[in-house]
Computed example of a mutant assay.
Amino acid sequence: MTETTQPRQPAVRDEILAYYTRGNEDARLRDGGAPAGRLEFWRTQDVLRRLLPPAPARVLDVGGGSGVHAEWLVRDGYEVDLVDPVPLHVEQAARIPGVTARAGDARELPAADAAHDVVLLLGPLYHLPERADRVRALAEACRVVRPGGPVVAATINRFAGLHDLLREERYFDPAQRARTDAVGDHGRHGTEGGLFTTAYFARPDEAPAEFTDAGLTVDGQYGLEGAAWLMGGVEDWLDDPERREAVLAASRRIESEPTLLGISGHLLTAGTRPA
């Protein structure tokens, strides 16, 4: 049964709302989207299918967007509740059979204590520039997951923008180089240049400390794209099923190598609520 509920509209910055109201995020991750987005999507599936408890289990997909991950989770047999602050995303996710979608804020989840077997935050930490807000969102995840249940959160790596602009040869533009170098210094991404919206790009060691401060036990970290997203030819590789599997396997081999965590565009940090 698909359900949409509309509680109090959560607070979200205007520029973030405007960015996601364009509706581009869903297409970025699906087949036909940019190679880096597809690699991120497939590797997220790959990691989560190893971390999550067997289906059926109740998953809270916080900041789940249009439901691009909720959709395959439902197909895998999970019961999925999705919370997102963007009205368009709630409308899109509510169309997916088996998904309950509602408006909500990661820092104040519309869920009871220990109500879910798993909590995913595959986007909210991107758009909480203040550490206190990120810890609050993780503490909310800790509150609503059952004791012993996993919490998995995604972060954008600190130098993802620098790597991306080098790969696309935009780093040679002085204005873009200056903005990108500044993000590398402090992690705060603004709206200048129109490439993204307000966000925080984190160092790999930041998320584990924030998990701990939120009351979660850290279990591991997983670099999603490895170095593959930066290589020429990756689009052709991903379009060839045999080569795609080789790329995914190579990324899996180095996913938790500490010296390589920062080279991925995105990082998953996994933890559990103490029993």
Results as ranks from 00 to 15, higher is better:
Ala275Leu: 10
Pro110Trp: 07
Val47Met: 08
Leu128His: 03
Trp229Pro: 03
Val247Met: 02
Arg131Trp: 06
Thr259Ser: 13
Glu257Val: 15
Ala270Pro: 01
Ala214Val: 10
Ala175Trp: 12
Pro87Tyr: 04
Asp236Gly: 14
His186Cys: 14
Asp133Ser: 12
Ala55Tyr: 04
Val119Cys: 07
Gly32Val: 00
Gly63Met: 07
Glu91Ile: 02
Gly226Phe: 08
Tyr20His: 13
Val47Ala: 05
Asp173Ile: 10
Ala93Tyr: 00
Gly215Met: 02
Arg179Pro: 04
Val247Arg: 05
Arg170Tyr: 06
Asp240Phe: 03
Ser256Ala: 14
Phe41Tyr: 15
Ala227Trp: 06
Asp240Leu: 09
Leu52Val: 02
Leu230Glu: 07
Glu3Thr: 14
Ala27Thr: 14
Leu29His: 13
Pro129Arg: 11
Asp113Lys: 09
Thr100Asp: 00
Phe196Arg: 12
Gly123Phe: 07
Val144Ser: 10
Ser264Glu: 02
Glu71Ala: 15
Glu40Ser: 09
His116Asn: 05
Ala18Trp: 09
Pro54Phe: 01
Ser256Ile: 06
Gly98Glu: 01
Tyr222Gln: 05
Pro274His: 06
Arg22Ala: 13
Trp42Leu: 15
Arg58Phe: 03
Asp213Cys: 03
Leu125Lys: 05
Trp237Gly: 12
Ala250Cys: 09
Asp173Trp: 08
Gln6Trp: 13
Cys142Ala: 15
Ile156Trp: 03
Pro97Glu: 11
Glu192Asn: 11
Val152Ser: 03
Arg170Gln: 14
Ala34Thr: 12
Pro85Arg: 00
Gly67Trp: 01
Tyr19Asn: 10
Thr259Pro: 02
Thr212Lys: 11
Ala103Gly: 10
Leu165Glu: 11
Asp164Pro: 05
Arg252Thr: 14
Gly148Gln: 05
Gly98Thr: 08
Leu268Cys: 04
Arg107Ser: 07
Arg13Trp: 03
Val90Tyr: 08
Asp14Trp: 03
Arg253Ser: 11
Asp31Tyr: 08
Phe196Leu: 10
Asp26Cys: 10
Thr21Leu: 11
Ala141Cys: 01
Asp181Asn: 13
Ile96Thr: 11
Val59His: 01
Asp240Thr: 09
Val234Asn: 06
Arg273Gln: 03
Leu60Thr: 06
Gly161Asn: 13
Leu267Arg: 04
Gly64His: 09
Leu128Ile: 07
Thr217Glu: 14
Pro174Arg: 12
Leu48Asn: 03
Ala57Gln: 08
Arg136Met: 09
Ser256Glu: 11
Leu224Cys: 02
Ala27Asp: 14
Asp84Asn: 13
Val74Asp: 03
Gly65Ala: 06
Ala141Glu: 07
Gln6Arg: 15
Pro274Arg: 07
Leu51Asn: 03
Thr44Phe: 00
Gly262Tyr: 04
Val80Pro: 10
Asp164Leu: 15
Glu245Pro: 01
Tyr126Val: 00
Val183Tyr: 00
Gln9Trp: 05
Val119Asp: 04
Thr21Ser: 15
Ala132Glu: 15
Asp84Glu: 09
Gly193Arg: 09
Ala112Gln: 08
Cys142Pro: 02
Gly193Trp: 02
Ala18Thr: 13
Phe211His: 00
Thr5Val: 11
Ala182Thr: 14
Gly149Gln: 04
Val145Met: 03
Gly32Ala: 10
Gly271His: 04
Glu235Phe: 03
Ser256Val: 00
Ala209Ser: 10
Leu73His: 06
Leu224Asp: 00
